[in-house]
Amino acid sequence: MGARNQTTFMKQLKEMALIVGGGSLAFVGIQVYNGNERFYRDYIMPCVMRCLDPESAHNLAIFIAKHKLVPKQNYADPASLQTKVWDREFSNPVGVAAGFDKDGVGVDAMLESGFGFVEVGSVTPKPQPGNPKPRLFRLVEDKAMRSTIRCGGVVGVNLGKNKTSDSLVGDYVEGVREFAPLADYLVVNVSSPNTPGLRSLQGRQQLEELIAKGRVDGLIVSNTTVSRPDSLQSKHKSESGGLSGEPLKTLATQTIVDIGQDAYEKIRAGASLVQLYSALVYQGPPVVKTIKRELAELLEKDGFTSVSQAVGAGLKDV
């Protein structure tokens, strides 16, 4: 090949590489922008988990939510998913659980991505650094996690107490005073596995003292669990803290199959609303679209015209 021909060939090769590379980037960009559920599940989230440790990945997710880089919903919620709880209108019953956005910086983005409500916190009266690192682990083999104002939408604030506080009710009272004028609902957290002694407040006498001055309108029936099923396979299974995700599914349903089916089971078991966190880690923000679509299909299949009709209808035999 002559020098001139070789130069021409190399130029064409570089142009082709730019075209192919640019086309690939454009394809990825389109899939991310459109919130392609399968692309996030099969490519984006596995890549994130390979490249970043759990806490860095979580911090990145919060940064993305804070700057509204999360894909916006392109799925109109069907009328069957609309529901009313505590005199609040929910466009759908699927929400983000407390623990994901502890500081409440990504509320707008999560609502715009399709969630019916967002719960932030837990919020404590005084700042606290959290547990010693590493404190967040992925149990990939078990599809689990271990973890030691706004646009239109419903926002709840999860209230907690400081680890060093000696007051039984003082921290919660301070939280109520601060956030009652801002939040659509407040959650009194007495179940966090990461705050020493907190779960002792679940005793009848302690609970009566804690809620004596207020009215309870609802109950969140399950948090993460400190139990460790024998079925766990990950090397991190013995780490302390709360376990969430797939291993918690059956336990959570008993106290109140796949994504939408899981939410539907809890609704038929008596839940008016459902929250998720771990599913975001493994499938990304578009997972909410999957849940809502499948939930609407299941409601229609069973002859329900609304979520409220299915609440407490009883679990079906499989």
Rank of each mutant, 00 (worst) to 15 (best):
K289A: 09
L182E: 11
L276Y: 09
P71T: 06
A79F: 02
E178M: 11
K68N: 09
P286F: 12
D230R: 12
K126A: 12
L243Y: 10
P54F: 10
P46F: 15
T253C: 13
L201Q: 11
V20A: 04
A57F: 03
L25Q: 13
V28Y: 09
K126Q: 14
V274E: 03
L280E: 03
P134F: 05
L182Q: 12
Y43H: 13
D258P: 02
P229M: 12
T250F: 04
M45I: 08
L201I: 05
F9A: 13
L139T: 06
E119F: 03
F179K: 04
T83M: 09
E119Q: 15
R50A: 11
V140T: 13
Y264I: 13
G35K: 09
K301S: 08
E178F: 02
E297V: 06
Q31E: 09
Q233Y: 01
L276T: 12
E239M: 12
K266M: 14
Y282P: 00
S278F: 00
V221N: 05
L13N: 05
S231A: 11
G314F: 02
A263G: 05
K163C: 12
V173Q: 15
K316Y: 04
K249N: 01
V107A: 13
W86D: 13
N223L: 00
V221T: 15
D217V: 01
I256L: 06
T83F: 01
T250P: 00
T195H: 08
D317F: 00
P129Q: 03
E119L: 01
D230N: 11
K316E: 03
F100Q: 06
V281C: 01
S222W: 05
G29T: 12
L182D: 10
L251S: 09
L136N: 05
F9C: 04
Q309N: 02
S306H: 04
Q261M: 12
A97V: 10
D317W: 00
V94F: 15
